[in-house]
Design a binder for these strands. Structure first.
Lengths: 168, 168
DNA sequence: TATTGTTATACTCTATAACTATA
DNA sequence: TATAGTTATAGAGTATAACAATA
């Protein structure tokens, strides 16, 4: 967790001096956002990037990215379903999902069986190793979610979650 | 605006039949999101992608992406500032900003002057042509924002904007 | 020594198209 | 004809590192 620009949103105002100088000169250079203040997409994007960054750092030991995590969770909760079903639910391009599953199969976390009723589709399952590692990954994901709550405030996180889930 | 997967979040339940078949079979395949239901980042990401998609489509005639738009707006509202100032405010890597400004300069929307007081930095300005085109772009961006409000509901958009701005 | 801007590389994600095999 | 999965390509965005010029 580096003291990078993302985290730098807060901090500040912790210096008793008038105008920050030297390394903190950057903080003074905040510009007028103008029309951006009226775009919900702008703020949505900023927060999403900050949260994904924390997710990636928190799960770095397993080298699991958010998209991979969402696929693993979906396979675990819906064993035997097809790539198309996962793809549609998560809005992941089937082309990209195919490559991602290759990687998850290489790690021996996921297994593809050809479906009994439809020769075209694959049934997706977690391997025993995959189930084991997912349990650990979920613990880290839960830790990340706590960190996100600290970052943005538990109250605001709850309100955001309610608003966003309500939509889709 | 295609009837793509993004928009497909709603629709459904508009069919008097029991289980949808054929083309609507996909709608039946919605899976259990399990732990994803507790991750604010997951829903944040979904909405951000949907909104950016609408932005890109609405501004397709000018071939302006969200990041480019934010840079143009910032330069217009803060003329003469450096690349470093823009970069820090928008959390865009300075390396990426350099390439983006190359493209905006190629279109003759932006001008780089070497700063008077600091030989290292550039003062960024819109050209007259850039100011003209930005006025049109802003009108389309306002239309996009209206569409976003229709998509997620004006009420929810306002609540989201308030929550998100309050944070960062 | 630190900062500004630049070039380069690598990886993730998105968007398409083309192809096969099955239905 | 349409769907499931695969491979390939191109572009955007992110993350680094290395470098020259300047402070």
């Amino acid at each position: 967790m580096t003291p990078s620009s993302t985290r730098g949103l807060k901090r500040r105002a912790a210096f008793g001096e008038g105008r920050p100088r030297g390394k903190n000169r950057a903080a003074r250079d905040k510009l007028d956002l103008a029309e951006l203040n009226g775009h919900v997409g702008y703020f949505l994007r900023r927060l999403q990037v900050a949260i994904f960054k924390d997710f990636i750092e928190t799960l770095a030991d397993f080298d699991v990215r958010p998209a991979q995590y969402s696929v693993l969770v979906l396979i675990a909760a819906n064993p035997g379903r097809s790539q198309a079903a996962i793809s549609k639910t998560l809005n992941i391009e089937r082309a990209r999902l195919a490559r991602m599953l290759h990687e998850l199969e290489r790690r021996q976390w996921v297994e593809r069986r050809s479906a009994a009723n439809d020769g075209r589709s694959h049934s997706l399952l977690l391997t025993p190793a995959g189930q084991k590692v997912l349990a650990q990954i979920k613990r880290l994901a839960a830790r990340h979610e706590k960190q996100a709550a600290e970052m943005i405030g538990a109250e605001r996180r709850a309100q955001l979650l309610a608003l966003l889930r309500e939509f889709g």
